[in-house]
Design a protein around this nucleic acid. Structure first.
Lengths: 132, 132, 132, 132
DNA sequence: GTGGTCTAGACCACA
DNA sequence: GTGGTCTAGACCACG
């Protein structure tokens, strides 16, 4: 697992980590059951404090994306969001709206946008983790 | 002018505004000389503090994207290097990927996802001034 | 709001706080919309670090028990667990099992146990926050 | 001997075991001289490390609740001050309250809750050796 | 060795 | 003023 942090983006480091683990899981780069790097190791690699990585892992555990077991490590779980249908819908619409609004501002029309969406869906569905 | 804010993304709200105005300016959605919404109007619409909008406008002025004339409002300046097709594509793909990754973790399949995307596109095309 | 901590119980302080806020909400001592004590104030009262209280509040926010707004404070939300039916069932069975096993060990028979359960339900349903 | 563990409660697992044995001993569910399950058997049943069970038994021995004779097993000692009716009541009410509070936050109403309680009572009465 | 908790104290974002 | 993030470093629980 390679992670990349942007300390100037204004986005909290721990959330950047959360997003990248979620991305890796969705792309198949990280597979269910696979171990994540130990907190101390990852903190050292990324030159951040151990607590920052721990906070990211805790957030991922609360989202049921990974499981953490003291003494054993952290592992990727398989799907199954713990949230109710309503909450899932709300979260997803939020993300979609961000993309739709960006398309509007960037003057990308509906057809091109839908084409891009289909392309990205294909990208993630072609699961084996082979980068395009 | 359509805006979309995510209060839980970790990204400062004022930077979300800055980015959206810059996207619109660089893509030609906003044209030089065009007025931006007054601070208090926009703050009310988006339900954020006026200081937050003011900070975004101040940042945009310091980046020479807009000019603010006290008492007259804010206007888009000329000479904003337009984004290339490649840059626009990259920015948009990032937003779409975020939504696709969310759909994966929320266990939303391709058909439902595409349905939601179409629904949100309709939503913004019907009433293009309303915040989500 | 009065909270009591037991530093010798072995249970993390931040979880003791979480449980007590949840208890107060269920008992009606704390009402939806009501503000919780500011993090700094509560930390001082309880003689714990600010981060410990912050961690408790963050956990409560992730359970959708409270909402936190920078600059404004923390407020109790009304019901509506964000979790799916399955997860809610699992969490509740876990708590019930703990009580059932305790009853077994303490040699409290089924009838007495059910009587106690009904009594405690009455206690919490008589909501106005008036201690019995 | 029935046990119930909650790996997410924050309370150390070995202390959960200690408490349950002490409850059983103080209420007479376990009688002086009666053997406790062997460490490795219990560890297997509860799916915890043998060290965890061993630590619980060591703690119980240091509290003079049980005696451990290497090669012969562990036995309940005599002279455990039995809990008074009031103490037993208080301990049990604490457990029940935890479940009632959980039900409140999980939006489970009285009828469903009582149904679940009855179901779990049946569950443990039918097969009184199995961990949940 | 692993992850978890807690402290002390700094700085930032937002109202 | 509020809550949020991050660091540095100590100690504990568990395997």
């Amino acid at each position: 697992m390679i992670f990349h942090l942007d300390f100037k983006s204004g986005k909290p480091v721990y959330l950047q980590l959360v997003d990248q683990v979620r991305y890796a899981a969705a792309a198949g780069t990280l597979r269910p059951g696979e171990p994540l790097p130990p907190i101390r190791t990852l903190a050292e690699e990324l030159r951040v404090n151990r607590n920052t990585v721990a906070k990211a892992y805790a957030e991922l555990e609360s989202q049921q994306v990974i499981s953490t077991a003291p003494g054993k490590g952290c592992f990727l779980l398989d799907g199954n969001s713990p949230f109710s249908r309503e909450v899932r819908h709300r979260l997803l619409v939020n993300e979609i709206d961000a993309a739709v609004v960006a398309a509007h501002h960037l003057q990308v029309n509906r057809e091109v946008f839908l084409g891009l969406v289909a392309e990205r869906l294909d990208h993630f569905e072609r699961k084996p983790g082979t980068p395009s």
